[in-house]
């Protein structure tokens, strides 16, 4: 274990807080994208097509 001296708690809490914030941000960013992609796929499955995607269905 690293000996960080008498102020070790300040150092570890700083790194812990930064890691928590970055992790929360990453979970939000990945989760939001995944959620919106799922929502779009669901809408398209229900027959709502984007204008750019309409031509592809006219086979």
């Amino acid at each position: 274990m690293l000996d960080l001296g008498p102020h070790a708690a300040f150092i570890w809490i700083s790194y812990g807080a930064a890691a928590f914030c970055v992790l929360a941000l990453a979970i939000w960013a990945w989760g939001d994208e995944r959620g919106q992609a799922k929502r779009l796929a669901d809408l398209e499955r229900r027959g709502l097509k984007r204008r750019s995607g309409q031509g592809q269905d006219k086979s």
């Binding site: 941000l25 990453a26 960013a29 990945w30 939001d32 994208e33 959620g35 919106q36 992609a37 929502r39 779009l40 809408l43 398209e44 709502l48 097509k49 984007r50």
Partner: peptide, 19 residues
């Protein structure tokens, strides 16, 4: 993170536009 959040926002706007 910025690219990820931008991708999510583009998808959100596509969903809203469809609806």
């Amino acid at each position: 993170l910025h690219f990820k959040a931008m991708r999510a926002e583009i998808l959100r706007r596509r969903c809203d536009a469809l609806i």
